[in-house]
Amino acid sequence: MLIWSRAGRAAVLGVTALVVLVLYAAPLAIIVLAAFAGQWNGVWPSQMGLGNFTAVFQGAPGEAVWASLVTGLAASAVALVSGTAAALALRGGRGIGRRALDLLFFLPSAVPSVSVGLALLVAFSRPPVLLNGTALIVVIAHFVIVSAFAFGAVSAGLMQLPRDVEQMAESLGASAGYRLRRVTLPLLLPYLAAAFGLSVALSMGELGATSMLYPPGWVTMPVSIFALTDRGDVFEGSALTVILIAATLVHLALVQLATRGGRAGGRRSGTA
């Protein structure tokens, strides 16, 4: 629809294809290409092989994969629990207090990640709590950054839940805890899973705060990629980037699969 003429449609689609290819397909393809390249002197790379990947896994950057995964999973798990608790508490509430808390839990998403890093650096390099130089401070930074996102996703999920289904549970005699356990959380599960999946993805790509905080023994993938490319190891950097992309996508797919495998389809039963 919209464009009925054959020529007009061809022109529009041609331009669209060009934009999508240049902006999105080409960058992804080129990174993958570079990840397998040994040399790139002419237009196209040469000496293709797995050398960059073996180099990554044999050297320090390999540890970055582990650091990123642990950081992402830990920070996202805490963010999910805290975000769910916050979203449940603020649900259906009204008034200035609720609005203020809502704003507070969203605020980390407004703060530049570098500033989050700086703030944690300033706060925990002095007594009473000394965390500077630990892996924990990196996890904390990632928690702060993904917390707003987890809270937002769970809140949005809660708003999608059919209210009458929960009311029905209540009228059938379910206590608040029973209803939460048997009805609200199961219905929320797809949203929780999606929130968790994207939180981990967000955390795995985090660079700003991590750059400010990371201790020598806890270098995440993005920091490692920057270090590699900064000193000219662009192909190894690309290989690690491909690993990062793959890890992110595999993780997202796994989360999606896990939810779909479960019986919880957060779909409303009514046909109306």
Partner: peptide, 21 residues
């Protein structure tokens, strides 16, 4: 899907690719 995938990917990826391009 290709475009939306970029929401989940780190931002610097594009810069890195652009240096090659």
């Amino acid at each position: 899907r290709l475009i939306e995938t970029f929401i989940a990917l780190p931002t610097f990826l594009v810069t890195l690719a652009f240096t090659f391009l």
